[in-house]
Amino acid sequence: MLKVRHYSVIISILIALVLQIIPLPIQVDIYRPDWVLIVLSYWTMALPHRVNVGVAFMTGIAMDILLGTALGIHSIALSLSVYTLTANYQRLRNYSVWQQAIIIGVISALYHVVLFWVQHLLTGIPFQLSYLWPVVSSMLLWPWIFWLLRKARRQFSIN
């Protein structure tokens, strides 16, 4: 029980990384939620002293390696998103889960705009509106991930 308590944040981030790279059919893949961003967002708001910009940066490096993108693209986007949450976590904790879902949508949009911007600078890819579908799926998934991770945090007394 003690080991799970200490490693539960890392385990949840690893599960999110696996969910981020699981192959999906092309028709469904454009709606893939930002699993890593959602999990990092929860832990940033719940435990800002343990999960911060440094954790987001290292997780972004892992995502770059797993997805085969240029090194640092996801690190920059995740770091900016988590920094925004860290700077406002005390205010965001007081919102209802549904209000937080809207905030997660805004953070996810920021994440995707930064990803697009950096990739556009590197490769010149054009912007497509379908690029923002994960924002909607991340917003819809937030309440369930929030409740699941909060239950795990309370059950294992993580603080």
Rank of each mutant, 00 (worst) to 15 (best):
P25L: 00
D29H: 13
S75V: 04
R154E: 13
N159R: 15
S137D: 06
S81R: 00
V4M: 14
L148K: 00
I76W: 09
W117I: 10
N94T: 14
I125Q: 10
T84V: 14
I158R: 02
I21Y: 06
V4H: 14
Y7K: 08
D34F: 06
M63I: 07
L129G: 09
F57L: 11
S79R: 00
Y42P: 03
N159G: 12
R32M: 03
P143S: 02
P134M: 03
V82Y: 02
M58G: 07
L149A: 06
I21T: 13
P33H: 02
S157A: 15
W43P: 02
Y131D: 04
W117S: 15
L121I: 10
L148R: 01
V28S: 14
P23E: 03
R91A: 15
S137F: 04
V36N: 03
I61S: 00
L37G: 08
S75L: 02
L110D: 08
V118G: 05
T84E: 09
A56R: 01
V136S: 04
P25W: 01
Q20H: 13
S130F: 07
S81N: 02
I65T: 10
I38Q: 00
L149K: 01
V4T: 13
G60K: 00
L110Q: 11
A109R: 06
Y131L: 11
S157N: 15
P33G: 02
T84A: 15
V55D: 08
L110N: 08
L37A: 07
I145W: 02
I158Q: 01
A109D: 08
Q100I: 00
L149Y: 00
V28G: 11
V18E: 09
V136C: 02
